[in-house]
């Protein structure tokens, strides 16, 4: 019997962390499902006076942040210090811009005079608010991964932090796309 399955090498430890994070993200997927059900129960398929351009841009910027994160993970696993630092910086910037666009959307939506208590209004604020909350967390973990990268050099044996932040950002970008589809289009 091989002892290495018990005594975790860096690799098996990494596998268990990846597994754990995967379980976390799978469990979090319950939340969009609940919100989509609530959306149809309360507002059926109606769509209020939302700005489609702002919505698309916010969702796309989320995808961009996730893409940059994936690139940063590659750079970190190769130990390219300057590379992952600037990529993570741009990823944070994209996520923050996505947040800013969502807030602009909120202001614009409020400006149309749609009450937050109307069926589409409450669904809009609840679903985009959840998206916003996830984006805030993702921007924070990407930012933390970047700051950490300046103090602790990432390399082939040490890039889990970037990978975890990136995986989370990827999940959030998917939440953004799903939210856009179910909130703005259907």
């Amino acid at each position: 019997m091989a002892l290495d399955t018990y005594d975790p090498s860096e690799e098996s430890s990494l596998a268990s962390r990846r597994g754990g994070l995967g379980i976390l993200l799978a469990a979090q997927a319950v939340i969009p499902v609940v919100l989509i059900s609530v959306r149809f129960l309360l507002a059926s398929e109606s769509v209020g006076p939302v700005n489609q351009v702002l919505g698309v841009l916010a969702a796309v910027l989320g995808l961009v942040a996730a893409y940059l994160g994936i690139q940063a993970r590659g750079a970190a696993s190769r130990g390219e210090r300057a590379g992952y630092d600037s990529l993570l910086g741009w990823a944070v910037a994209s996520a923050v811009l996505s947040i800013a666009l969502l807030i602009v959307q909120w202001i614009a939506f409020y400006g149309t005079g749609t009450s937050p208590g109307s069926p589409y209004g409450e669904v809009f604020y609840v679903m985009s608010g959840t998206w916003l909350m996830y984006l805030l967390i993702a921007a924070f973990v990407l930012f933390a991964a970047r700051v950490r990268g300046r103090r602790v050099a990432y390399g082939p044996d040490n890039y889990w932090d970037v990978e975890a932040a990136t995986l989370f950002m990827s999940f959030v970008s998917l939440v953004g796309v799903v939210t856009y589809l179910f909130l703005y289009l259907i």
């Binding site: 609530v38 208590g117 109307s118 069926p119 209004g121 409450e122 604020y125 609840v126």
Partner: peptide, 8 residues
């Protein structure tokens, strides 16, 4: 629902 408030 309480803070905004909404009518969920």
């Amino acid at each position: 629902e309480r803070l905004v408030p909404l009518n969920l």
